[in-house]
Design a protein around this nucleic acid. Structure first.
Length: 495
RNA sequence: GGUCUCGUGGCCGAGUGGCUAGGCAGAGGUCUGCAAAACCUUUUACGGCGGUUCGAAUCCGCCCGAGACCUCCA
């Protein structure tokens, strides 16, 4: 396609043509979850957005290396770098080894990702697996005079960094204002400046997760792992760094400062930020207590939910908005999405089942042109900062053609074999591979079997033995045998 | 208070200086034993006030309203 891919770069605050540093390779890093509690739907939105970006880049032929970390070091509950370690706290409360907490919620996270058909990244590094590398980066920063040690803890010297760099370039902060705006913490603070942040924290008594370092037995600062792991797997400068808006400051700002401080290079070419999921206009977040857990959605067991919604309904719902807009979560919107999703996925089933047959129609240039136009619009939309909402709109337009083929309102011959294949393949490819929507078959297989058993019983009662034999043999082909019992009919797997 | 985003028809949600978003809901029609689905047609719109322009919902200013970040958060 001739239309170039453009992405909105949060760093430059404008849409830019996407040009990878080393085509056809693309390096993409996305901040993953901290595994100390269940992921909620807001978290899912971010990973879903980058899933579609990942899928589309691959669709365009790029060789993408997608890295998404797992934060399994317990970071502190407030940014004064005080407070309790979240994983350690949970471990203590539940009387578990911290790594049990980490494992449990990592497993849960992976299950949720699979539920929403979010592809796994190529590399999923953990913070605890890269303590050595983090220590190395701290050393490098200390050697450059950008970090200082106090009582076994090491802090990043933001004002020092700002002398030759621009701290705040991503989030639009001005250091002076940050410094005047932040309260000086009473007495105990080890930092030279409130805006400085921890690279290494000495473990206080009772802190469970701890490692040896040249400075103390302790643990690394929150921002450090992303700088370290992205550099390790993608290089000191790589193409795309993603994450939720709420990580822009301070997390991503600090990441830039660390990386640039250590290497002298700007680490990321394109910064992409996804917007928040809201509930009644308010951000969904753990701390506000208005978050939905994925399983609550699927079961419908939540006071704000009228009914259950399937994972693909939610996926479809989220893709109907642009990743950089807030999206409000409501029953009405979800119900509409459920119907829309089913319409689209019915189309996918039809698309896959249609076979081209010569039915005497002559080529219809007008329809062919329409289809070409729609397909071009699909690429145009996706290339415009991954506008999945517009892609879906166009897919519904293709769907009309597909449905018309099925109902014979449109003849195969009008499209010709080539036109037909383009229609079907584009539709199926975008629905399944780019948007990642998959068919959700009814799970109630038992219920469907019951219906067959009922028909079988009726046929027997009518002594319609042809029908009886037919049902029996058809089920047998599927590995299911019927059992005529004295008082009822049952079934079993064929042995 | 500082920085920033948004305000689109009954609901959700794209987009754009003049050319159909789309889904859901509503209306009419075709098809159908009935129904559903599908297809065709169709109603409802760009927070307010100014300005730029031949023309703005789209650009600019002001106002009103909502939200995000500035503390852990995707």
């Amino acid at each position: 396609m001739q239309i170039p891919l453009k992405v909105y770069n949060s760093l430059t605050k404008q849409k830019e043509e996407f040009q990878p540093i080393n085509p056809p390779f693309v390096g993409m890093y996305v901040c993953g979850p901290t595994v100390y509690s269940d992921v909620h739907l807001g978290n899912v939105r971010t990973f879903l957005s980058f899933d579609v970006i990942y899928r589309y880049l691959q669709h365009l032929g790029y060789k993408v290396r997608y890295v998404r970390n797992i934060t399994d070091v317990g970071h502190l509950t407030d940014d004064a770098d005080e407070g309790e370690d979240k994983i350690g706290k949970k471990a203590r409360l539940e009387n578990l080894e911290p790594m049990q907490i980490v494992q449990r919620y990592s497993n849960d996270f992976h299950n949720v990702m699979e539920l929403f058909n979010i592809l796994p990244p190529d590399i999923e590094p953990t913070a605890t697996g890269h303590i050595v590398e983090q220590i190395e980066m701290i050393k490098a920063l200390m050697n450059k005079g950008l970090a200082y040690e106090v009582n076994g803890s090491v802090y990043f010297d933001v004002s020092k960094y700002n002398e030759n760099n621009h701290y705040g370039e991503l989030s639009g902060r001005v250091l002076e204002e940050l410094m005047s705006g932040s309260r000086t913490l009473d007495g105990q603070d080890e930092k030279r400046n409130p805006v400085d942040f921890a690279l290494w924290k000495k473990a206080v008594k009772g802190h469970i997760m701890r490692w040896h370092s040249p400075w103390s037995v302790g643990f690394p600062g929150w921002h450090l792992e992303c700088s370290v792991m992205s550099a390790k797997y993608l290089g000191e400068t790589f193409d795309i760094h993603g994450g939720g808006m709420d990580l822009k400051f301070p997390h991503h700002e600090c990441e830039i400062a660390q990386s640039q401080g250590a290497t002298g290079k700007s680490p990321v070419k394109y910064w992409l930020h996804t917007n928040m999921l809201t509930v009644n206009g308010q951000k969904m977040s753990k701390s506000l207590g208005n978050s939905f857990l994925p399983h609550q959605l699927v079961t419908g067991e939540h006071e704000l939910l009228d009914q259950p919604y399937s994972p693909m309904t939610v996926r479809f719902f989220m893709l109907q908005s642009h990743y950089s807009s807030t999206l409000d979560f409501s029953n009405e919107a979800l119900k509409a999405a459920a119907k829309g999703y089913k319409k689209l996925i019915n189309g996918l089933r039809i698309a896959k089942s249609l076979e081209y047959t010569e039915d005497g129609g002559g080529l219809n240039e007008k329809v062919l042109k329409q289809i070409d136009q729609i397909i071009e619009n699909i690429y145009r939309s996706m290339n415009d900062d991954f506008n999945s909402a517009r892609v879906i709109a166009q897919l519904f337009n293709l769907l009309k053609k597909i449905n018309s083929l099925q109902t014979k309102n449109l003849k195969f011959g009008e499209l010709g074999k080539e036109g037909f294949e383009k229609l079907i393949n584009t539709f199926a490819d975008f629905v399944e591979n780019v948007l990642g929507l998959r068919e959700e078959k009814p799970e109630d297989v038992d219920g469907i079997l019951d219906i067959l058993l009922k028909l079988y019983a009726e046929a027997k009662a009518e002594k319609n033995y042809d029908k009886v034999d037919e049902i029996r043999s058809l089920l047998k082909e599927r590995g299911i045998v019927l059992k005529d019992m004295k008082d009822k009919i049952d079934w079993a797997y064929e042995e």
